[in-house]
Design a protein around this nucleic acid. Sequence first.
DNA 1: ATTCCTGCAAAAACTTTGCACCATG
DNA 2: CATGGTGCAAAGTTTTTGCAGGAAT
Lengths: 146, 146
Amino acid sequence: MSVSSGEFKRMLQEKGFKLTTQRRTVLDVLQNNKGKHMTAEEIHEIVRQKCPEIGLATVYRTIQLLQELKLIDKLNLDDGYIRYEIGKFNDDNHHHHHHLICENCGKVIEVEDDLMGTIEERLESEYNFKITDHKVKFYGLCKDCK
Amino acid sequence: MSVSSGEFKRMLQEKGFKLTTQRRTVLDVLQNNKGKHMTAEEIHEIVRQKCPEIGLATVYRTIQLLQELKLIDKLNLDDGYIRYEIGKFNDDNHHHHHHLICENCGKVIEVEDDLMGTIEERLESEYNFKITDHKVKFYGLCKDCK
DNA sequence: ATTCCTGCAAAAACTTTGCACCATG
DNA sequence: CATGGTGCAAAGTTTTTGCAGGAAT
């Protein structure tokens, strides 16, 4: 489910990086807020509860690092903020997931499913393009807003 | 195919806006660069060929306006720039389109197709969510890079 | 004539970078 | 103890806003 400190340390060392309290804490916060899609500033605020002296710059640097390690993914809700979430390769099932975004209340619903297989096969042969990943967002009205 | 000046004027007036050379020119540039996914700055440079005195702020303001009128769409390639393209409701066929993004050379291929119908039906009933739009990006290697 | 629009420059918002000090392996 | 990381503040980007003059209806 989560990445242990040992695992994380090994992943870092593989690329010549060191394990620090700051890095461990940022990863913890992202793991403990799985459905939240936080901005760098929001991550910073929560991380400071455990690690009060951490600077926003370190959060940004750590976010970049975690992206390189494929532990987290970007999510852009087109509201001017880049958001981050624990990535698809960080949990047991390596499933992709999609987002249902309510245009009325802004709620973001996670869809833990991968329904894109057939479409991707078709596009791969039609365009001679090797697909390795996708990002899918659906917009509309959630059950409370429609 | 394209939005005529008369049509554009009517659309603007409906919302209490005026037709200006700047707005017409920005729309023209986006219509004439259909597959290009330009940033605000790129649009500004091209618009200046026809309208040399236009300021970047006006380009930003016009982009926002054209989005309100549903004439253009945002495209985020996660490279730090917001890009814009003529929207799906601006041409004869109201089809959505998707993007194949090559992670090696950065090329973006337009997929003029809408293959999401079945998936959307399934999600609508499963999550009681009314889907009105979607954004789909596929990442991988294009035929030249694989 | 009135209302809205534009250009410019300043400000705002988000992210990156430089540097001296500190921590990890 | 060598290398890389951190915090702070400054700088960099991209986008938005205020305002006086200008254009459209």
